[in-house]
Design a protein around this nucleic acid. Structure first.
Length: 418
RNA sequence: GGCCCCAUCGUCUAGCGGUUAGGAUCCAUGGUUUUCAUCCAUGUUACAGGAGUUCAAGUCUCCUUGGGGUCACCA
């Protein structure tokens, strides 16, 4: 943990900042509070609530094996709990806490309801290692209590740590916080999420082109709902979210829905904000005079910022090649002459062409005078401008490019037609 | 294996004893569009199984089955 701890801290804080979570107070390092934990350990020792255990690791392993052979639950047998004999030489003792030996450890979980765990399920667990370093369940309880934590919300996998931590809270006389254990999120196959499932770091979602609002909205609806509402602003989440109506069962990660939400949030993000975000994806259109037009023409088409960036680049860059299938279909028959005529018309009308509708009027005129279908000009023009048969509206693209670039692309395309 | 938790469309979910079991996503079809996408409309698909309790059970109880979690001198 000492290794790269600064780096790790920064990464966590950065992720918090990205999703818009604020944190107060300074970062507290457990490794720098050993004296404090030591004080509590000594206190428990003195009060007889904890004791030294001289069992060696080998002995412990042997005990465990024996229990496993008998198909019993593996647990420490408490042999040093009330030890009065002479202590073994050459063994640095660990400190174990005295957990209740009978009855139930009961707590009210905010999402799961009442949880009853037999005291026999919790053994006298180690609170300080042989080298004196305190253990997780011990320090967590102390930190939480000292920081005045009122609500613990954590993953399901910590449910079994709770009775242990309660033992610590009680031994030290601290007030119990509210515990809430949220079920796990599984991958799309319903299995435990692992590194192979893609993102392991919150910031991976940023690099994949997701908006933090979309991620948050996606996550909040996993295991939680508010009637039929699907879209939640951060303010709404804060106002409406209650741990008690989180589902008890685990849910599956669903990429389609995340993508759908992300597309929704992209469509609803103002263009100037999108332009700033896009800088992180290799597209700098900040000073572009057709910025609004460019984003209006593309934002409906990109499910992620990465896709949106691709869409923009597709329009901005002169196609270096034409999709084979598309060109075969589009560049046939009279396509060549139609394109040439269209280019001439554009040049003739150049001074009057500004808005998408102006360009549309030229297309209308061409279709009318040549008595052809819209597709006759639409298809070849599209392939000329974008290199493929799909993409944004032609009139918008031309308005963004301007007459010169449009004509250039048309001429380039004509040159490839046999 | 012991202990704990869970179980409604493929997926996310609504439902809190009486509903034609609702919404979203996905998929399919149709419409809009010069293309794709968007958008709109329509459609397919679910109460894991079995016993009870009750006039009435997706909803309550029990069992079975199936999932998940956890059993460290890790965090």
């Amino acid at each position: 943990m000492a290794r790269n701890s600064e780096e790790a801290k920064d990464a966590i804080l950065k992720a918090f900042a990205w999703v818009g979570m604020a944190c107060d107070g300074d970062v507290v390092y457990q490794s720098k509070r050993f004296d404090l934990y030591k004080k509590y350990i000594d206190q428990l020792l003195e009060e007889g609530k904890a004791y030294k255990c001289y069992m060696s690791k080998e002995e412990l392993a042997a005990l465990r094996e024996e229990q496993m052979a008998k198909k019993e639950r593996t647990r420490y047998d408490g042999r040093y709990r009330n030890f009065t004999g002479t202590v073994p030489q050459g063994v640095d003792p660990v400190i174990r806490i005295k957990a209740p030996q009978e009855g139930m450890i009961t707590f009210e979980d905010g999402v799961k309801g009442t949880i009853n765990i037999a005291a026999t399920e919790v053994d006298d667990f180690v609170i300080a290692r042989a080298d004196g370093a305190p253990t997780y369940n011990f320090v967590v309880a102390i930190d939480d209590a000292l920081m005045g934590l009122t609500d613990v919300i954590r993953g399901d996998d910590h449910l079994y740590n709770t009775p242990k931590q309660i033992v610590v809270y009680k031994a030290l006389g601290f007030n119990l916080p509210n515990f809430n254990h949220v079920a796990m999120i599984n991958n799309e196959q319903g299995k435990k999420l692992s590194k192979r499932d893609g993102a392991t770091d919150v910031m991976d979602y940023k690099t994949m082109g997701y908006l933090p609002e979309a991620l948050l909205n996606f996550l909040v609806r996993l295991g939680w709902s508010h009637g039929d509402q699907e879209i939640f602003s951060i303010e709404e989440m804060i106002a409406l979210f209650e741990p008690k109506n989180i589902n008890k069962s685990s849910s599956n990660y669903n990429l389609d829905k995340l993508l759908w939400l992300n597309a929704h949030y992209i469509k609803n993000t103002p263009n100037d904000e999108l332009a700033i975000l896009l800088k992180g994806y290799g597209v700098d259109i900040h000073g572009h005079d057709k910025l609004e037009l460019l984003l209006d023409a593309t934002k409906e088409r990109g499910k992620t910022l990465v896709e949106l960036a691709d869409q923009i680049n597709l329009i901005l860059a002169t196609p270096s090649a034409y999709d084979e299938k598309s060109s075969k279909k589009a560049f046939k028959g009279e396509a060549k002459t139609i394109l040439a005529d269209f280019a001439v018309m554009l040049q003739n009308w150049e001074g009057t062409l500004h808005l998408p509708c102006d360009y549309h009027a030229v297309m209308d005129k061409l279709v009318e005078t040549k008595e052809i279908g819209f597709g006759k000009i639409g298809m070849p023009l599209r392939v000329s401008l974008l290199g493929s048969m799909t993409g944004s509206g032609l009139d918008e693209i031309m308005a963004i490019l301007g007459v010169d670039e449009t004509v250039l692309r048309i001429e380039k395309a004509i040159a490839t037609i046999a």
